[in-house]
Amino acid sequence: MRFWLLKAAGTLEDEELILEYSVITIGWAEFADLSSIRNEAQIKRIMLEKYPGMQDERSSAWAGEIYSFITKIKKGDLVAVPLKTRNEMLIGKVTGEYEYRQISDFVRHIRSVSWLKTLPKEDFEGEYGVDLSSPETLSLIEAGPEKFSDITKVKTLGVLLEELNFTLDELGSLKERLLELTYRLAETEEISEVREIAAEMEKILTEK
């Protein structure tokens, strides 16, 4: 199992589509189906035919990324996709081989995934030592077995429902307490009591 960083999510609409369809994409939608590709040189040739003025070093790097997306990412590998419109990383497990399927103008070269969770970008960068501002679109993340274990931990539906119910109950109690304090505040004219009520309300709101 390997862990890949893939910085190709497209627009807000494309981000919603990769979530909805459970896929990742490498971009390069201007290229036709690449299923028959056998090596990086073929991709580079296609790229230079499309963009004849492209620098050789750049075309080699991009061809390598596309080839890795098609052939080197394996089913069972993990992938992290930074969202452009949110301060979050999508974490998923690859479940399918390369496909060419038009989902949007941008999302055509795809791999199926099972989305596992989201993580804040800052936490992800710190935990895995990656730089999300680096120019590479696709790269490997160095991660030991213990980090693979952490990243693949997914809460069961039962646990999530228990946490949700607890949170809703807690919010209900807080709402009742805030309403009670509001009524007290409306009824009193004592400055000391007003300050006491205001302090308690501030404490509740700050802690929650």
Rank of each mutant, 00 (worst) to 15 (best):
A32Q: 14
E40L: 14
A61L: 15
A32C: 07
R38Q: 15
V81A: 02
E136Y: 08
E57K: 15
D14L: 08
F106Y: 15
I43P: 02
K84A: 03
Y100S: 03
S36F: 08
K93Q: 14
V113L: 11
V81F: 02
A41W: 12
R108A: 04
Y51W: 12
D77R: 08
L48P: 00
K93F: 07
G27N: 01
S133Q: 13
A63R: 05
S104N: 11
I26Y: 02
E15T: 10
K84I: 06
V23I: 15
L34G: 05
M47C: 12
T85N: 10
R108L: 06
L78S: 00
R108C: 12
P82M: 08
T118R: 15
I66H: 03
A41F: 13
E136S: 11
I26H: 00
I70G: 01
R101T: 09
Y100A: 10
K84D: 06
K74P: 00
G76S: 06
S35D: 06
E142F: 02
E15Y: 07
V107G: 07
I18S: 07
E125K: 13
V23P: 01
F69D: 00
E88M: 11
K117L: 12
R86H: 09
G76D: 01
E142D: 12
P82H: 07
T71I: 00
L48M: 14
L83S: 05
R86K: 14
T25C: 03
K84P: 01
S35V: 03
T95Q: 14
G92Q: 08
P82E: 12
L19I: 13
Q102M: 14
W62T: 08
R111V: 07
S112E: 15
E40K: 15
K74Q: 12
E40N: 13
T95C: 11
K50N: 12
S60T: 13
L83K: 10
E57R: 13
L138Y: 06
L140R: 05
